[in-house]
């Protein structure tokens, strides 16, 4: 193993033949092509349209007999035409369009869910960060989260003595658990390296929370928020059925009491579409906020 051998042996690399240069034609930049977009839209919209049309046909046939207990689509269309065509009419305090009712319910959800998001992320951060907070709080959370939303209603009615804050409380208590639990998991999964970076920079608790913890746990937090918003929309309709007022839930109960079945069916469609939009909204906000952060 000597250095001499290196010097004695002649090592020579021969120049390779000049490589042939192949010119690539630049790929045309993607432009907005109306045909492509129309194709994509058709692929997204046509299959569900066909399925819905088929369901309507089956429903129409099944409920056409005079003895049928539920109205067929044609009857819904005829009798509830006002509700379908004019979502924003306003004829006095109890006679308003369904869009208004949905908005009132949404307002309650916004307050209850907003509070749940703030409190849930804070509690989740605490549980994720501190082993003692987790040992103490986690069992409590695990038990409370299985309580059905409406079971809270009598208690909150007794506490608040008013229907509107009670409904909001039910939203809050329903949607907070998945937010807490997902945030805690996200915080526990923050890579040790990020913590080390913050320690070297001597970030204080608040800076660590805002600059490292929330962004790092954001994918988890948004999973929790998305589950939470779905649960709140489920709970508000049920809560409003019992508390009254002008929300979409009470509308259904009212329609049932006055045997307006077509109205109920229209209201269900409104609820479904709104819930879908809420879910997509939170998902879109989440995708925007967590861009760049790989979801684990």
């Amino acid at each position: 193993m000597s250095i001499q051998t290196i010097e004695d042996t002649t090592v020579k690399a021969f120049p390779a033949k000049p490589a042939e240069v192949i010119a690539f034609t630049a790929k045309a930049r993607r432009r907005i092509d109306p045909i492509v977009i129309a194709g994509k839209l058709a692929r997204a919209l046509v299959p569900p349209a066909i399925v819905i049309a088929l369901m309507l046909v089956v429903w129409q046939i099944a409920c056409s007999s005079p003895t049928a207990s539920l109205p067929p689509p044609s009857q819904v269309w005829n009798e509830a035409y006002d509700l379908i065509a004019h979502p924003f009419f306003n004829n006095g305090p109890q006679d308003i369009g369904l869009a208004w009712r949905v908005l009132i319910s949404l307002q309650r959800v916004a307050i209850g869910f907003g509070l749940a998001a703030v409190v849930g992320v804070a509690l989740g951060a605490l549980v994720g960060q501190s082993i003692w907070a987790m040992r103490g709080l986690d069992p409590v959370f695990q038990i409370l989260r299985t309580v059905p939303p409406l079971a809270w209603l009598p208690l909150s009615l007794a506490a608040f003595r008013d229907s509107s804050p009670s409904a909001i409380f039910v939203i809050f208590i329903t949607s907070i658990w998945p937010i807490i639990i997902n945030t805690a998991v996200g915080v526990r999964n923050i890579p040790e390296d990020y913590r080390n970076v913050s320690r070297i920079l001597r970030l204080n608790q608040l800076e660590f929370f805002v600059k490292i913890m929330v962004p790092a746990a954001a994918p988890y937090i948004f999973t929790g928020l998305r589950i939470g918003i779905g649960l709140s929309w489920l709970a508000i309709v049920a809560a409003e059925m019992l508390t009254g007022g002008v929300g979409i839930g009470f509308f259904i109960w009212d329609a049932w009491n006055s045997s307006r079945l077509p109205d109920i069916i229209v209201a269900l469609a409104y609820i479904g579409v709104t819930g879908f939009c809420l879910d997509r909204l939170v998902a879109a906000v989440g995708a925007f906020v967590t861009r760049g952060t790989p979801a684990k």
Binding site: P191, N196, V197, I200, R202
Partner: peptide
């Protein structure tokens, strides 16, 4: 205790993925 006068370059870089290059240094 750790501090910025002993800066560490970690093996796996430890840049915060939600910040740009500039923002990482700016932090």
């Amino acid at each position: 205790s750790p501090g910025p006068e002993r800066a560490v370059v970690f093996q796996n870089h430890s840049l915060l993925p939600w910040l740009t290059v500039y923002e990482n240094i700016n932090l």
